[in-house]
Nucleic acid binder design. Structure first.
Length: 222
DNA sequence: TGGATGATGGCCT
DNA sequence: GGCCATCATCCAA
């Protein structure tokens, strides 16, 4: 099923007949996640993040992402390929969930590339497209534009917690995954900027590894 | 075991 | 713009 809406054109959001079981036919496969991180970064824009929880199922279109590259990247938890209990999953092959906490919030990333190349894509914002009422309830607000326009916000709205750390996003048995509904994001509609909140990263502070969909109302900041 | 820190967000001025 | 809640994580000791 192709959602009959266009990003940035529709608002308020409404997808009354979206069928999750149909979307599940189009889960991104392992081969997607094994690709170079910057391919994953670019191609994850416009895909749909789904957390299946029965009547509390939520989904959102990915509109803002960042790359964190192990080894060289001083902004990464795996700078110098540092392996700790927290970062262990980054060293597995692509397709697993790397979820961590910062202050009181959870942040969701997915692991990319083959085993022992610890790199991830952080989902910084999604556009709510399913389960909007439960998102409002979890976030304690009515303002649709603020439900998921930040990495901590979207995890709260979609009930993504550390219990999902290490989950295989490519298994149909699991309840957290990303699907491709055929929505295309044109290259000219991708804005590339410095990443957010990594002032400590020295020469990696300003690398343009944050991608977002131009003019989308749900990005975390300009 | 304790201190420092944070890939944030909400509230304030 | 600033302030800070609040706790998992890491590392020095």
């Amino acid at each position: 099923m192709i959602l009959n809406h266009a990003i940035g054109v529709r608002f308020p959001v409404a997808v009354p007949h979206m069928d999750i079981s149909e979307l599940k036919q189009s889960i991104l496969p392992k081969t997607f996640y094994l690709q170079n991180t910057f391919i994953c970064l670019k191609d994850s824009l416009g895909k749909i993040l789904v957390h299946e929880e029965g009547k509390n199922t939520t989904a959102g279109r990915i509109v803002e992402v960042e790359a964190y590259i192990g080894g060289e990247d001083k902004g990464s938890h795996t700078y110098l390929n540092k392996k700790t209990p927290r970062t262990t999953i980054q060293f597995e092959e692509g397709g697993y969930a790397y979820i961590y906490t910062v202050h009181t919030h959870h942040l969701f990333t997915f692991v990319t590339q083959p085993k022992d190349i610890p790199s991830v894509v952080l989902i910084r914002a999604v556009e709510p497209i399913y389960g909007i009422e439960i998102m409002k309830e979890r976030r304690g607000m009515e303002d649709i534009k603020s439900l998921t326009n930040g990495p901590g916000k979207l995890c709260k709205a979609m009930n993504i917690t550390k219990e999902l750390y290490g989950q295989d996003l490519t298994s149909p048995d699991f309840k957290l995954y990303i699907v491709d509904d055929g929505f295309q994001v044109n290259d000219k509609d991708i804005v590339k900027t410095a990443r957010v909140g990594i002032d400590y990263a020295e020469e990696y502070k300003d690398v343009p590894w944050r991608y977002y969909i131009k003019d989308n109302p749900f990005i975390s900041r300009k």
